[in-house]
Simulated assay, not measured.
Amino acid sequence: YGALAAALDAELRFAFEVDVGLHRGGFSSPAEIKALTIPKGLRCEGIMAYEAHAPEIPGLFGGAAKALKQASAKAAEFVAVLGPDQRRILNIGGSRTALLHGSGVANEVSIGSAFVLPKDFDTPGLDGFQPAAFIATSILKALDPVLPGPAAVSRTLQALGLFPRKGCYLYGGKWMAEPVFPKGMKPNGLVGLSSNQQFMGLPAGANVKPGDYAFLRPTQSEAVLQHFGAIAVFSDGRIVEFWPTLPMG
C-alpha cells in the first residue's frame, strides 16, 4: 500500500484489522502494531475488530456476555497503542453482536445482514428486527406424490408419516433457505433436494395450484442474494422498484 500511495502520489487511509478473539486473521497483538513503521503516504484511521464468535461461546466458558467483554477489552489494548490522531474509526461488532455492546472503546459498530434478517440471525440481540428478504418462486406442479416403485411403498410410508400425501414442485431449488409459505411446506428426505425442480411436501389441507408462489426465507444474506437478480421491493401490495445486488466475487 505504501508503494501504491507513492505511485499514485496520493494519501491512502487505512484501518488495522485486529483479532479480538475470532482468530480469523488480523493483528493478534498490540505490540505488532506498535513496532510498525507506517510508510509515507499512508494514514492510519483506526482499527476494525470483529467478534462473531461471541454468541457461540457456551455458558460453561462464560457465554456471550463474557466473550463480548473480553473482545472489548482486547480492542481497547489495540487502541492504546494508536496515536490520538489515529482513532477516528474504532469499529467493533457484526449483526449478531453490535447491539449487545454497552459502553466500550468503540465509536462505531457494523451491521449488515440484520437489516434483512436471514434465518441464521434469529438471535436475542436482534429481537426488534423483522425478516425483509424472501425468495419467491413459482409452483410448477401440485400433486398427490408417489415414490418410484410399487405404490404400496408410498402408501405405507405415508401411513407412517414419513412421506407426504400432498406435494408440489418448485421452480429452482436447493437454496440456503427455509420454506415459510405455503404454511407447513417442507422438503422431504426420501425425494431429496434439487436445484432444478425442488420437491416440497405439503400438509393435507394445503390448497395450491400451478402458478401460485411459494416463499422461502434465506438462512444467509449476501451468500443467497447474489445468486439472483435485482431485489423486487414490495410495498403496499405492489412491487414499487428494483434494487440491484452486488456482483459475485
Rank of each mutant, 00 (worst) to 15 (best):
G2D: 02
G2L: 03
A5I: 11
A7Y: 11
A7G: 11
L8A: 11
L8P: 10
E11N: 09
E11G: 13
F16V: 08
E17R: 14
V20S: 04
V20E: 02
G21L: 10
F27Q: 01
F27H: 05
I33G: 11
K34F: 00
L36C: 10
L36K: 13
T37F: 04
I38V: 15
E45F: 10
G46R: 14
I47W: 03
M48Q: 13
A49G: 12
P55K: 10
P58H: 09
G59A: 15
G59E: 15
L60W: 11
G63K: 11
A64F: 14
A64Y: 13
K66Q: 13
A67R: 07
K69E: 13
A75P: 02
E77A: 13
F78S: 04
V79N: 01
V81K: 00
G83K: 15
P84G: 08
P84V: 04
P84E: 12
Q86K: 13
Q86M: 15
I89R: 10
L90A: 05
N91T: 08
G93L: 09
S95H: 04
L100T: 02
L100N: 07
G104A: 02
V109K: 07
I111Y: 04
G112M: 06
F115M: 07
L117W: 02
L117D: 00
P118Y: 04
P124F: 06
D127Q: 09
Q130Y: 08
P131W: 12
A133T: 07
F134R: 08
I139C: 07
K141W: 05
A142F: 02
L147C: 09
L147F: 10
P148F: 01
G149F: 13
G149C: 14
A159T: 10
G161L: 08
G161E: 01
L162D: 06
Y169P: 12
G173K: 06
K174S: 08
E178C: 00
V180N: 08
V180S: 08
K186A: 15
N188C: 14
G189R: 14
L193Y: 03
S195L: 06
F199E: 06
D212P: 05
D212M: 07
F215K: 02
Q220Y: 03
S221A: 02
E222K: 10
A223H: 05
L225R: 00
H227M: 04
H227V: 00
G229S: 00
A232R: 01
V233E: 11
V233K: 00
F234T: 04
D236A: 13
D236T: 07
V240G: 02
V240M: 01
P244R: 02
T245N: 06
T245V: 15
P247D: 01
M248T: 04
